[in-house]
Design a protein around this nucleic acid. Structure first.
Lengths: 342, 342
DNA sequence: GCTGCCTCTGATAGCGCTAACATACCATCC
DNA sequence: GGATGGTATGTTAGCGCTATCAGAGGCAGC
């Protein structure tokens, strides 16, 4: 590590400084850094020593100016304070770093086409080489994707945009697992508290739930609308609690499931004795709520990993669009579900 | 918006292209972009029109190469899948974007000096102009901060590093509020489930709790160790449940509080009738767990905003180190606490 | 010994932008 | 009318790197 103490007008060492110290030309330094094998071992050692002594690091701006590569990926996301999106972002950041790329994050404040376009523009302007979209599929809001430079590699997460490669958890399967689990416990049918209609996750879960009911010839009750929040789950739960025919509820995420649990409890409905409840996400506290929540676990890390893998395939491999990936979730059975008794 | 359809070997428009189209020199284009008032309105309009027609955007690499400014801030964080860190990151990203800077994120995989140094190096290498550290204060692991280029502006969040400006929530105050709330309900003393010792948040909360007990002349029970997870809270809760003298518990975060709740419930201890429990964080589900959790709400957004404000003050204002800020949290009373009865 | 052909290193020219200075032009003043 | 000055624009020289080609040196072959 070079000398870090610093005079007022210090200049970071540049390639020329290293070259002078090593007694070579700056081109040789560049070669040591870019294609070490093309330099005689002896020379290479001298250069590496000089680099070490000066604490030299290449200037990335200069480098990307000439190579036209920024070694940066952009992530567009929305509200990452909740467990699902946060984990997804986390997975993506880790995978990106592992691949030696930097991550630039743009977070949408509102789900409008305008906000999305601006975010993408900002990232494009930063010369990102690829883009990960974790924002929900407000179809209209996402039309902007067509305005993207066609050279830019894009992967959408949980977002089946027609023209874009996507990586997603198999929401339909997850919902089927949840619903079938409840049916297998002897429940006549399953009620559903759904997520917002402009999230494809929400729609996938509705689809899986319906499919499972229909495949088993069960009546499909009217779904209740939620907005992912525990408060909306609570509101839905109050309605469900009033209907004595309800014995099984599948909430589209754990927060809403928690709200349902709360509402049922307050109404004197016992879980799982009277009503069974299943969530979705398997957030870290799911095993410790009362009662411990049966839910569907999403492999967020894996989604992050695969998105980046595909994205970098496009970035480095050329224009070819990678194949979309779908990753299966898993049902985790805990204590909020039981055989029908009511 | 210029023509986006693209031939195979398209070259993005550069300043010279705009200049040619507008019939000026590239310097005038640069001026229109950087100091519009120095250009005659008539000329300016011509240039702006040309920019629009070509869909021109300045090349940020070239720009930052010559200005030595990247308009990018770096964030070092650790495990942002939980509500607290995720919200903090979110607040910081929003504030940074609002200020017109890009955000580059580096996420630590492990809390070691090595990982931290590498993360910082990566960001420095990306020429970030300032650094926000949201990583916990593993004092030893953070020694690397001294190795930072002294020219780099740094703000630590929740991390009282001696030589670095910091922004934090007043953990001591929050813990005092929680503890005093419990004492005011008639509890003789309050037991504490603490967070890991290498997190300054955890230590601040221990301090506030102790201070409150001592100020009121109460015995200070031995604290129980936790690791922020609900599982560790559960383990602590089982111990607490065995001790009939325990009537009030302050857990250092909501997850652990949830674990405590669960353990007490399983042991047949009623909350809040037999034992009162307070958490910390006010995570979004806190109002819907059973019973709704009394907790301390942290102003994450505000912390993000202030960190960036201070950081940009340093970045743009020169070398002067900004004053550290401490933001007060608030007690939110719900149903997990009640007057002593046991 | 000269040619040919490797391997390694150096000189040079940009990448696209801004900083700094140069110039043209017009208005102003004595 | 020429010196003065202010304003709008142009010219030039880099920022720190990589790409490209040129050159130096070594070694084989005839």
């Amino acid at each position: 590590m070079g000398d870090v103490s610093v005079a007022k007008n210090w200049r970071l060492p540049v390639m020329g400084d290293v070259a002078r110290l090593a007694g070579v030309s700056h081109m040789t330094v560049s070669r040591v850094l870019n294609e070490p094998d093309s330099v005689r071992p002896e020379t290479r050692e001298r250069v590496l020593l000089a680099i070490e002594q000066l604490g030299y690091r290449r200037n990335s701006a200069a480098r990307s100016l000439v190579t036209r590569r920024s070694q940066t990926l952009g992530v567009v996301c929305f509200d990452t304070t909740h467990h699902g999106p946060a984990s997804m972002l986390n997975g993506i950041v880790h995978a990106t770093e592992e691949a030696g790329y930097a991550v630039s994050v743009a977070s949408l404040r509102r789900l409008t086409a305008d906000a999305a376009t601006q975010a993408v523009q900002r990232l494009v302007h930063q010369s990102v080489e690829g883009l990960v979209l974790i924002a929900p599929q407000a179809v209209e809001a996402m039309a902007f994707v067509r305005a993207l430079p066609t050279t830019l590699a894009v992967v959408a997460v949980e977002n089946a945009l027609p023209t874009v490669t996507s990586v997603s958890v198999d929401q339909v399967l997850g919902a089927r697992l949840a619903t079938e689990h409840l049916l297998s416990l002897g429940h006549e049918t399953v009620h559903h508290v759904r997520g917002p209609a402009d999230w494809s996750e929400a729609n996938g879960r509705v689809e899986g739930w319906m499919t499972a009911l229909e495949a088993n010839g069960r009546p499909v009750p009217r779904e209740l609308a939620g907005d992912w929040s525990a408060a909306s789950g609570y509101a839905a739960g109050r309605k469900l609690a009033r209907d004595p025919r309800v014995t099984a509820v599948f909430a589209a995420n754990d927060s809403m499931a928690l709200g349902v649990l709360r509402a049922l409890l307050e109404a004197g409905v016992r879980v799982p004795e009277d009503v069974s409840v299943v969530g979705f996400d398997d957030f870290p506290e799911a095993a410790y709520v009362t009662p411990p929540l049966t839910t569907v676990s999403q492999p967020f890390r894996e989604v992050g990993r695969q998105s980046i893998e595909i994205l970098l395939g496009e970035v480095e491999g050329g224009a070819a669009r990678g194949a979309s990936a779908v990753i299966p979730p898993e049902l985790v059975v805990r204590a909020s579900t039981a055989a029908r008794r009511r």
